[in-house]
Design a protein around this nucleic acid. Structure first.
Lengths: 337, 337
DNA sequence: CCAGGCGGCTGCAACGTTGTAATGAAGGCG
DNA sequence: CGCCTTCATTACAACGTTGCAGCCGCCTGG
């Protein structure tokens, strides 16, 4: 049913290969021939068969994107940005969800045959840890996102977590707060966003001469709204005093903020809140949530750029590149005053 | 580099086709042979080349999903559900964003060569209208979502919009409210979620004997948080009295609720709020938002099921199927009392 | 005037898979 | 004992594309 090179060639009265050459804009084609072929292509509505092309050339024009789950707004906004960045480079995105931090599923995904028709992968793990770095030595181009694995064998796009987190904490300190709770720590974790952000927090405290109080560190399981809410409830129940909360991501901060308000705390008067990620919804919460903008578009664009680079240069081994995106502190109502 | 059928066949000492038969679990293979081939497959780490398979068989195991934008939570949650439903049927999803209701981009997408390696498409338009129904007569299997196009030539999964919307309105009425504002109407629109939901609203009013007041209908451009916020600001400025708000989706309702609160209105005492979509974040707003659960998982699962059915039955023309998902009213704090 | 170069085009083979038809061997039945 | 069926396996040809080698004819320089 669909027209093939053969059909176009027959209609234009040239060889199959000449049509292919026209499609690929090769040189050494007489303008008259080119026009004739173009006309035939339009008439038949010819579109190249990507499976055949890919079988022959080994390229599909599709990149894989593997992330935990789209229902976490952070990943939805990230996927949005990556799909747009890919489109700018004429690539389509095949989206794979690995679930909320399931290490085994993430590892299985890396060797899934579903990735076969993909030229490369942008991978945002949540369950892997640095010991798994070797697993990333797969046979295809890959770019790593996030803060789970460092020093792996692949290009890595991430951000200045420690500095950004320190800036967030200093922002609260500059507003006169000294009892700053953290929502979202991961007890016992060695590597990951949580660890880095807690580290930035501690550096800020140290710089300001504020003693570190472990009672202010709230551990959670995952980074959903419910976890933030639960952690805040627990914190209030302990009776510990606090005058500010740093949610290690926006979702945690929003969940926690709601519980604090229900408990009668005024934001920002009694407790200030700051989050991390600059989700769209932080602009519309009550009060609006201060947060850290991690430069999502920059991250997305760089990830796609690096992946394309890897795809194009083939298997030439090269020292993995690490790219750190810029961040900005966004000051909103939740830290006003 | 990657092992092919040929390599496996050579190692196992059988023909290429026998290996293929083992891979596909065809009958009439001696257990001993099967074992030998299996061992060879494992030893070489053989994975079928999907491009080749697809070239030969015309199937790729990939379905396309085209929706406006992932940064709208509704679509992010929908995509999540569809990807999971596809995975259950061993399909991968290629995600295409068409932007926030751009009709031309939606039409262009339908004939994009990027869809070449896709077995079919799940399409959620926002810019098309019923006059464009004929455009959906593409040459590949397709399932339509949403309320933009009715009576098109393809299977359609949608929901009881009018009834659900009527139920939402009746819920507010049952709480004693009579001045119910609508946020999210589309002036002049003939078909679409907005029209249907406003219709349900009017039916509820009629049933309760409440007069319809056009001053309570707030038009918006898109269905983002900012639009809900802006519409509410405008409504308050008009000085019209109202004691409840029906946001035609959750995002609008949340944006509007925030503005109302900033303006000093108490929710639910002064104004009750109800939304539509049952987004995760409605569970964590302050107050939590009552909403309509449109049966997202059911919609996702049905869409994938119908698409698979269309793909498998080939080009046999058949009367398009219309599936209507069930809804539920979720009663939360924003309508308490 | 001829060798050599180059522009413009074509033919062939291959990418890895699968459907069809065909093969030979073993077993059952009259 | 020969014929027919069933089992187990194989050979071959395609799917639509692209890389490579090659061909022809014209132009240029010596």
């Amino acid at each position: 049913m669909a027209a093939t090179l053969r059909d176009v060639a027959a209609l234009a009265g040239v060889s199959i290969k000449t049509v292919s050459n026209v499609v690929h804009d090769f040189q050494h084609i007489r303008p008259a021939t080119r026009e004739r072929v173009r006309a035939a292509i339009d008439e038949l509505g010819y579109k190249p068969n990507i499976s055949a092309r890919s079988l022959r050339s080994g390229r599909t024009g599709v990149i894989g994107l593997a992330l935990p789950e789209l229902s976490l707004s952070y990943f939805a906004e990230l996927a949005d940005a990556i799909i747009q960045a890919a489109e700018r480079r004429h690539l389509v995105v095949l989206l794979e969800q690995t679930g909320g931090g399931d290490r085994d599923r993430e590892i299985a995904m890396l060797s899934s045959p579903r990735l076969q028709l993909t030229d490369g992968l942008i991978f945002s793990p949540l369950g892997l840890s640095t010991e798994d770095a070797a697993m990333l030595n797969v046979g295809y181009p890959m770019v790593l996102l996030g803060e789970r694995v460092f020093g792996g064998p692949v290009d890595h796009v991430t951000m200045h977590n420690v500095e950004a987190s320190k800036a967030a904490t200093l922002h609260l300190i500059s507003r006169g707060r000294r009892r700053i709770a953290i929502i979202g720590a991961h007890e016992g974790e060695v590597v990951g966003s949580a660890v880095l952000r807690v580290q930035g927090y501690r550096e800020a405290l140290a710089e300001a001469g504020i003693p570190f109080d472990p009672a202010l560190i709230c551990n959670v399981g995952r980074w959903h709204r419910a976890d933030g809410a639960e952690a805040m409830r627990a914190l209030i129940d302990t009776g510990v005093s606090f005058d500010a909360v740093f949610g290690l991501n926006d979702t945690l901060a929003l969940g926690a903020m709601r519980v604090a308000q229900v408990a009668g705390l005024r934001v920002p008067e009694d407790v200030m809140f700051i989050g991390f990620d600059a989700l769209d919804e932080t602009k519309y919460s009550l009060p609006t949530l201060s947060t850290i903008d991690p430069g999502r578009d920059e991250i997305a664009d760089t990830a796609v750029r690096l992946l394309v680079q890897r795809i194009e240069e083939g298997v030439t081994p090269r020292v993995p590149e690490v790219y750190l995106a810029d961040y900005t502190v966004i000051d909103r109502e939740s830290t006003a005053g």
